[in-house]
Write a protein that binds this DNA or RNA. Sequence first.
RNA 1: GCCGGAGUGGCGAAAUCGGUAUACGCACUAGACUCAAAAUCUAGCGGGAGCAAUCCCAUGUCGGUUCGAGUCCGACCUCCGGCACCA
Length: 889
Amino acid sequence: MDEKYFAQKIEQKWQKKWAENKTFEVEIDGTKEKFYALEMLPYPSGRLHMGHVRNYSIGDALAWYKRLQGYNVLHPIGWDSFGQPAEQAAIKKGVNPRDWTEENIRQMREQMQRLGISYDWSREIAAHRPEYYKFDQWFFLEMFEKGLAYQKDSQVNWCPKCETTLSNEQASGGVCWRCGTPVEKQARKQWFLKITAYAEELLQDMSQIEGEWAERVLTMQRNWIGKSEGAFVEFKVQSSKFKVEDSENLEFIKVFTTRIDTIYGANAIVVAAEHPIIEGNFENLTDEVKAKIEEIKIEKAKPTDYGEEVEKDGIDTGLKAINPFSGEELPIWVGNYVMMEYGTGAVMSVPAHDERDFEFAKKFGLPIRQVISEPHLVHEHHTMQALALEQSFSDYGILVHSDFWNGKTSEQAKQEMTHHAQTHGFGESAITYRLRDWGISRQRFWGAPIPIIYCETCGTVPEKYENLPVELPETAPFTGVGESPLAKVPAFYETTCPNCSEPARRETDTMDTFVDSTWYYFRYTDPHNEILPFNPEVAAYWLPVDQYIGGVDHAVMHLLYTRFWTKMMRDIGLVNFDEPVKNLLTQGMVVGESYYSEEKASYIPLDDVEIERDARGKVVQAKLKSDSSPIKVAVEKMSKSKYNGVDPDDMVSIYGADSARIFALFAAPAENELVWQETGIEGAFRFLQRVYRLVYRWHEALRVAPSGAKITTEGSLTLNARKLRRKTHQTIKRITENFESHQFNTPVAALMELSNALGDFKVEPKDANDAELFAVDEALKSLILMLTPYAPHFSEEMWEILTANSNGILQSGARFPVADEKLASADELEIPIQINGKLRSRMMATPSTSKEELERMALADAKIKEYTDGKQIVKIIVVPSRLVNIVVK
RNA sequence: GCCGGAGUGGCGAAAUCGGUAUACGCACUAGACUCAAAAUCUAGCGGGAGCAAUCCCAUGUCGGUUCGAGUCCGACCUCCGGCACCA
């Protein structure tokens, strides 16, 4: 044993051993309980960043913990290797996306191995390899058959920078999820997956994961799905000015409302510019109206700044509709605030009770009629025609000016009026969702080709299963402009129709890369299957995932898609459960200090900044070294452009992977933001050094450590030894509880306490008696085993030194220690004594000291006597082993 | 605006069921060792008063419940995250 701890030497040794012994490769084993630990698969950008390190450290800690408890642990990794950056590299540097990707994978795999993450590398997958994306295509064909994949013309989100379409989830907030560019709307034909068919189920099944997934994720998904209950109401279109075509669509205009109780307050019907009633009557509209509609359409396609309110705009079309409740004739307007994609593309405008309608009515001088009143104002509303409204009133209340329904509550009226509409055939109760189908067509090269062929005679024809995979060509002209590069590769798109064998053309769009990452973790269970995405029986053993760990940024993209995919797979018989992930841990960001110069309008590297800090380390002043101009110091997400990133490789070569991993887990709870500080990782390194010195100090003496059998009675233990054993078992108990509740920072604190206790154990190894040696042996081995999830290389090495077992902890049959409740409970306690709830004194007692005895002892306490003297004792509360509280007057 | 989450030392944070608030670490201060530095070790480290024993105040604010509240209830303030003309 070296006198000093050399991290690199130990880490290399064990990484080699693990690989040779295939320590982390697993197979189905019916005799063991399984545990599936999963981290979100990375995009192979080429370099690992600290967010990755944190992610994998958390997952690895859990994987080790479960292995040490005897579970059969599946802990795999792979690559989300299709996507934009590879294509960008091709455009900018002229490299082949495949070569670029493979090289990046190679580099990152090495980095992961240097971190010593315990993956089963035999199961590694990569999305860009034909053996994988073959099954993206397989799933597409399955869904095409079931009507879950379909093609449609629609207004899609278009990122002008990435030059491709985006799903609604990827354009959330009006910006591209990758590059942050505001998205435009474009009319395009593209392929959709029918996630909306599962909207209700996606909502309902949240009850199965409630409490196991972070609340914020469930909330985001709930909001995204956006269920709202209301009613459809049909308004007959009646035009005095124009002849309405005698088509079904045009005879009625259907409106969705959640507030049918306000229908007597409707002053107009407002429709989207794209509404069929407009198109159907376009010829008959005045030039002014036509021009306005065109203007609205153009404005809508433009990207809007995030959060910017667009001013209401619209025009009266001249068409009329009849309110089926009141029989009143209402004008039909076009409004820029009505969306074709939601509901029916038409709303009834009730300005008195809807903020947007109110704004619209004010702007165009439309009548505002209040039909819902607050209970205490009902009387006035009955006697007066209308009270002037300063703003819309959108709460529930009592109906007024609503004929038969006057005096009813909104709740009552909603029910009864919906029923009324239903029985009279002009409406029905309805539920709408904000969620829309998942558009998966991408005008890019580096993705899975969509297995569809367009034939002049047969139309849109799916590729045959036996022809999968539809492989990408070696290369394509990467110009960065225009259509998908695949549309410029005749050898790819020229094909024959699977139906009639006539010449035909392949679809040249590829699939959204989120398709690849939707089901990848099912593939891990059976990664080499050539017939199916995975064998359902194999998957049934490993899945669902027991613990999934990843960033919260995928809350409504990947995590929603994968829940949908699972339900789809269940319906085609591949899996037999509803929810793929039992427990989800959303880790916080890794942030670092950044330095911004307003003068230069750019971020500055640390080396060029001079920082003055006070005695406590707080920044007093920061300035640029070159010209002393002021610098703003902030803590932000690590990124290259902000010069505040830390390279994991540097950390590993300075402190070792184990120290980096301990810091990543210890510095903050997993869900919180983590500020990366070099002094923090130094602290972790110091801790390992202290443990190393403890092992160095004791390992020779412990070679002859007595077995537990030799020190049978507690009585033979010295006070020293007894205290140490108590600390050991208390620590085991604490750490086990922490792990079970997914707390990874507090066990480190507990381990530090145990190591401090060992450091305070002042008996010299050569002077220690059997009982003391036993206690130290137990404490040290427990410490090492419990440290394994955090610092596996270090622990392996220490274990070898302490047990002379050179094949590794797992092979030695060692298990995570189990706490002995008896030993963990203290035999001597310090009991606080309170007067009126305030701590006044303490006394020593044992857990078995009776209530009466505690009370007697407390009252006899000298300090307590001072407080009780001459006072009346009202009550004494005794909580055995906890405290005594004396209430005096 | 709507929906979530969170407010505890200089900092990251801890605190089972309502029972000794500030564990563990970082930073800092002093001391030991050293020619010196680093490393290491020892001690201190919420605020205030006091020579001291000790006392008072303190978990965003204000109330409430309780023998006892960081924890439970009510109102409010602030910060973070998400969505955003969703009818």
